[in-house]
Amino acid sequence: MQVPAQFEYARAQSVSHALSLLDRYGPEARVVAGGHSLIPMMKLRLAQPEALIDINDLSELSRIEVEGGELVIGALVRHAELLASAPATGLFPIFQDAERVIADPIVRNRGTVGGSLCQGDPSEDLSAVFAALRATAIIEGGDGRRSVPIRDFHEGPYETAVQAGELLIELRVPATPGTGSAYVKVERRVGDWAVAAAGAVLSVAGGVIERAGIGLTAVGAEHFCAPEAEEYLTGREPGEEAFAEAGRIAAEHCSPQPDQRGPADYKRHLAAELTARALRTAMERI
């Protein structure tokens, strides 16, 4: 039987209450929402927080709305809710592509968007999705709210910009019309972590690529993105040749680690191929 070490538990009634609880319990406290990353780690004693602050009652963090030209996704939005959200998937089908292959439907009923991002697992899918979309993370602490570009959010494996005493509130994505997006993942079996995956976001103006966003999962891409490949694409005519070259550049700049999911050269091959496929599908969806 896997049993977590002992901890204290407190349920937050509001964001300010959650922040005061985080302040009271100190840096060894952890926020719990869906718990589908944290609780398994606690059961394996890989994580031993002294206290859990439960934010499941903070309905103000559950919204998905378009507001002032931005799509706002609350940190407490469940994976299943994002998958079913017409405003989110209508603007950005990349959310549907990714959410359909995150774990399984029962896990998606409980796990949250904010929890996935804050866990900062290198194989987690939404990190690359939001990186491709160039989202902004809104973080609140004792000194108020601050905005962090998502590409500065992940500071390393399992490390994020959310500091002790702070809470991730929501993600904001510029709701640019005329954008195409897609996410492609290779997994060993349904619901597994990615062997590798790629997300792409494209907008085209005057026959050339105006803006490209590329996110990479599980291949050791810094900040889950591929800026060199994005730069290559910008100003170019969209097409097979450009997409294949962008894939090649993206693969060149990542550093996959061999593990039970595959050797490094296979993952690098996937990074190139999946980047090209995601770009192709994103282009078709514009």
Partner: peptide, 22 residues
């Protein structure tokens, strides 16, 4: 494996990954 699936407020969840206090 999902054998511990129960409905929490009408929604299926895996009860090995939910704390009773939650």
């Amino acid at each position: 494996c999902g054998v511990c699936t129960v409905q929490l407020d009408g929604v299926p969840v895996k009860s090995c990954t939910v704390l009773a206090v939650m």
